[in-house]
Design a protein around this nucleic acid. Structure first.
Lengths: 220, 220
DNA sequence: TTGCAATTCAAACACTTGTATGAAACTATC
DNA sequence: GATAGTTTCATACAAGTGTTTGAATTGCAA
């Protein structure tokens, strides 16, 4: 089998470095140094830097999507085709939050890599990313089944806001800690998950009577 | 005064390009081409590329912060020291959303540049960014005055979520449009503002009884 | 006009990037 | 153990980056 030691060493090193420092300032030379392999190995095994990134993203994307869907599926079957909205939202944002926040040694390289990918949107990833929309559509479907009275538009907005809160909290966790002078405990991941899920649930279940009322109350 | 035509042409071109394409793939040569000036002009007038970016960011940061605070101040004075939470939130997220969404010709280069800066977090900007925390603290103060019964932690989380929804919606507007197949109308900016403000208000005013309840309902 | 400082310009520099090359080392099959 | 195919390696390459240089040009004061 030729022991693809080099190949997987490159993949692991690349994922770790990208997760830690972003795509912007990680060079092939950084990666091969971290992986203890020769510079040319990347092009030999993957063809190009972009193809390395693409493979990394595709692999992780499939894995985490399958993981999330499994959780969702289980919840829906347990509820006879309908899962409570909180459970759906928890399946959507829980894994990512748990993988990116909390005690350092419990964080998942994969989750952090995926967050980077969703943030920086480098060309090779942007080309593939449509896949994620189909994935989100499945969640939207489950949400619709869970809340048959809400309009599609409201469902999509709720989904959007849930992802917004989760991703932004991950991205800006340092700023929130600093702003709150440590009062917001981002190491208590389950509390963070609960907060995000709670607000997203409210967004999806509360009446929106006064939503459109004072259009420009504060417009100067 | 020597007619700083070149200087301001560079600033304008850089801001426009950065706003459109991000810091990642805009080179000095792109900027000077857009500004119709010589390549060396950037280093002559600003010292370095990083100092150009820093000046751009500082200028815009001061301006938009002053703008937002003016709106906030006015609202608080009109309410005798306390402004309704909706108005505060609207002052926080309204200008940015209006500047980045809506009809193309109404979008603001400044707002789009600031969003890029808050997303990509390039080194010269990261060094200055502490300033923004002080700015957010002022909003947190107003929110605390508006909702004296809420804990500081809840205030900070509400602030965090409001910014999360606004920024994420801007960043991922294209995806939301695609996901909802056009049903979510991101050109109707006032509707977007209303939705963000509405959810953030709920997050800040609703009781949080069940928040901490089912910690790992869906954990496999 | 003359002189001097500020500005512009074309060109080159030093450096980093991803990629390509061809020889060397290794591995497995006969 | 010789041989063919795979993998590794040091090195070079071409392109792009921000920056520097020193001469040309401009604008303004004496």
């Amino acid at each position: 089998m030729a022991s693809d030691h080099t190949r997987s060493a490159i993949l692991a090193a690349a994922e770790r470095l990208y997760a830690d420092r972003g795509f912007g300032d990680v060079t092939l030379r950084d990666i091969v140094a971290e992986a203890n392999v020769n510079l040319a190995a990347v092009n030999y095994h993957f063809g190009s830097k972009d193809e390395l990134i693409a493979e990394l993203f595709v692999t992780r994307s499939i894995a985490t999507n399958r993981e999330r869907l499994r959780e969702l599926k289980a919840a829906e079957e347990a509820g006879g085709g309908r899962a409570p909205i909180e459970v759906i939202l928890r399946a959507l944002v829980g894994p990512t939050l748990r993988g990116c926040l909390g005690p350092e040694n419990q964080r998942s390289t994969a989750a952090r890599f995926m967050i980077r990918a969703s943030i920086e949107s480098v060309p090779p990833i942007r080309r593939i990313k449509n896949r994620e929309i189909d994935h989100l559509r499945k969640f939207a479907g489950a949400m619709r089944r869970s809340l048959p009275d809400r309009s599609d538009v409201d469902i999509y907005w709720g989904l959007n806001f849930a992802l917004a809160m989760a991703h932004h909290t991950i991205r800006e966790s340092e700023r929130l800690t600093k702003l709150s002078e440590g009062q917001c405990d981002l190491d208590d991941v389950e509390d963070v998950v609960a907060r995000v899920v709670s607000v997203a649930t409210m967004a999806l279940t509360m009446a929106k009577a006064e939503t459109k009322a004072p259009s420009r109350l504060a417009a100067r």
